[in-house]
């Protein structure tokens, strides 16, 4: 079942064409790793899916509903309803610094879903256990390590019960020794059949955890396929050059 269908997506910043005619599908339970050089449009593509960027042409449908059809967006309430199916994890975490870890988890479902306090407490406590941060519930983000912050950010996204989780370079801002703990949480999610799109420079993760790799360069999808194909037998020179530099 297609969770996300993108067709002929185009996006430019002024004269610069950032995304040129992107077309791809993400199926249920897919873990898609999006790789490619900096400036290839990976992040812009991901941000377009949650309406942090507005696209110029093409269509995006999410679980069967159009977020944008042939470049035309519906009204804001509809957009909100459609994007609410997706959660997003940012490179720089973007935790709310004035709220404790547990408050960070609970604020959105409290305000948006009007969930009851006891229900929220139960769910947030459960998720904190899952990411191994039960003892940090009352800490403020300033007192967490980068890896802990990113794990909290993942838990915060999960609090909204998304059907699809998007990761925008989730480990790029972390010290190398802290990436493991974040990748482990993502691996656990993949094992629980969460549908995920991960823009990443972590080739190890792409190889081990993803069931599909999309290689982007210069605003285009150069090739995509199972990691075993892409990593061992890339079809295009651009892919080969990039992979040679990355390993």
């Amino acid at each position: 079942m297609a969770m996300i269908e993108v067709s002929n997506l185009k996006k430019s910043f002024g004269k610069l064409d950032v995304l040129k005619q992107l077309t791809f599908t993400v199926n249920k339970n897919d873990v898609v790793a999006v790789i490619g050089p900096s400036g290839s449009g990976k992040s812009t593509m991901l941000r377009s899916l949650v309406h942090l960027e507005q696209i110029d042409a093409g269509s995006i449908s999410v679980v069967g509903e159009y977020l944008v059809k042939d470049g035309v967006y519906p009204r804001l309430p509809e957009i909100k309803q459609i994007t609410s199916k997706m959660g997003m994890v940012f490179q720089h975490f973007n935790l709310f610094p004035h709220l404790t870890v547990q408050e960070n988890l609970e604020i959105a479902p409290k305000l948006v879903k009007k969930a009851s306090a006891s229900e929220l407490r139960q769910r947030s406590t459960e998720l904190l256990g899952k990411i191994g941060l039960t003892n940090r519930a009352k800490a403020y983000p300033a007192n967490l390590s980068g890896g802990q912050k990113q794990r909290v950010a993942i838990a915060r996204a999960l609090m909204m019960d998304p059907e699809i989780l998007l990761f925008d370079e989730p480990t790029s801002a972390l010290d190398p020794e802290l990436t493991g703990e974040v990748l482990q949480v993502m691996k656990d999610l993949a094992e629980e059949q969460m549908t995920m799109i991960v823009v990443t420079h972590e080739m190890g993760f792409a190889k081990e955890v993803a069931n599909r790799v999309i290689f982007m360069d210069d605003g285009e999808i150069v090739e995509s396929g199972h990691p075993s194909e892409i990593f061992t037998n890339p079809q295009f020179d651009r892919t080969k050059v990039f992979l040679n530099r990355s390993f």
Binding site: K80, H92, L95, F96, H98, V112, A157
Partner: peptide, 27 residues
């Protein structure tokens, strides 16, 4: 205030009022 605060609020589904009063103003 970092623009990431606005983006995180938006992606989590907060409306303008909630974002302003609960996320932006306190900071």
């Amino acid at each position: 205030i970092d623009k990431g605060q606005y983006e995180a609020s938006q992606v989590l589904g907060l409306n303008k009022w909630q974002m302003t009063t609960r996320i932006i103003m306190p900071q």
